[in-house]
Design a protein around this nucleic acid. Structure first.
Length: 323
DNA sequence: AAGTTAATAT
DNA sequence: TATATTAACT
């Protein structure tokens, strides 16, 4: 609602971390393949910790050598690819009987739960806003987002959720009782019953364009003359691999790792930092010290689910990190 | 084929 | 429980 829409792209770009700032230091303790192969679907499962800018002060011996099995396909070195964003899918080939999981990962694999981080969502909203509700379809959005690893389904699902959110908001605004949720919590202050505060906050993270609620009123600009589809689906990678920050969220395991790492876990306060993310990078970015900006309110989309659930692989991609 | 909705799994 | 994923339908 503010600023010129003409420079949206500029701003957008600015928000994106520089290649040098990218630092998807993800250490996969347990390769997904392995975990899955072992059928570890319990609290103790795969563990991918996103080492961000941690290990900078108190970090005894950082995990030096990443085990053989890694997300990096050895046979191929698809590094030379301009990937705008990347979502590391720690999927695996569930080849239990054989154990030979070193095949072509990314093929008939079940992706882990994708965690929509505020940033990612922001990107999503951004794309939708730029496309316009009418053109805001999963496919288009997905392409606009250029988030590698993101599938149409992911977007569709999220889009659906987002639509509900918008509708709800609209309903509240209109004064009509939608009836969807009996809870009429205040938009920003109160909370909704159906949707958690987390969702509210997540969506609240990004301002909802006005035209969003006004179908039929294509407000001015659809910014975005050209789509930054820097990395459409490449025939090779299609959408199963990536190289970004993937994190398998594991409630219990995570805490453990968090401890091991020193911190970076979920602070009691709720302040978090996501200084890393992979965007258009093709070089082995190195870690960055500490992001100067980054005023994320406090979203803990990493673990923190704890439901007595086990085996919950969550993939978290961190697209742009700025709000 | 794509998009949307509903149901299911985690 | 809520969220994300998957399936089915339109």
């Amino acid at each position: 609602m503010r600023d010129d829409d003409s420079n949206w792209f500029s701003r957008w770009e600015e928000e994106l971390p520089s290649p040098e700032e990218l630092m998807p230091l993800s250490q996969t303790l347990i390769t997904p393949d392995l975990a899955l192969a072992f059928d570890i679907r319990n609290p103790t499962n795969t563990a991918t910790i996103n080492t961000t800018s941690l290990m900078q002060q108190n970090q005894p011996p950082p995990p030096p050598p990443p085990p053989p099995t890694a997300n990096t396909p050895s046979p191929n070195h698809p590094l030379p690819h301009s990937q705008p964003n990347s979502a590391e899918y720690a999927a695996d080939s569930a080849d239990l009987g054989s154990g030979a999981a070193g095949d072509e990962p990314a093929r008939t694999l079940k992706r882990p739960r994708l965690v929509w981080t505020p940033q990612l969502h922001k990107r999503f909203v951004d794309a939708v806003a730029h496309l316009g509700i009418k053109n805001a379809v999963p496919k288009t959005i997905m392409q606009l987002m250029s988030v590698d690893g993101l599938t149409r389904e992911n977007v569709a699902s999220h889009l659906q959720k987002y639509r509900l959110y918008l509708k709800r908001m609209q309903g509240l605004s209109s004064g009509g009782s939608g009836g969807i949720n009996g809870t009429g919590g205040g938009g920003g202050g109160g909370l909704a019953a159906g949707s958690d505060a987390a969702t509210e906050h997540l969506f609240a993270s990004s301002p909802v364009p006005a035209h969003f609620l006004h179908p039929g009123r294509p407000n001015s600009d659809h910014y975005l003359p050209f789509v930054p589809v820097a990395a459409l689906q490449h025939p090779h990678h299609q959408q199963q691999m990536a190289a970004a920050a993937a994190a398998v969220a594991h409630p219990q395991l995570h805490s453990q790792y968090h401890r091991q790492m020193g911190h970076f876990g979920s602070p009691p306060n709720g302040q978090f930092e996501h200084p890393f993310l992979a965007r258009q990078t093709q070089q082995p970015v190195h870690r960055i010290g500490a992001p100067v900006h980054n005023t994320i309110p406090g979203y803990v989309e990493d673990l923190e689910s704890a439901s007595g659930n086990g085996g919950r692989k969550v993939l978290t991609l961190f697209p742009t990190g700025d709000d």
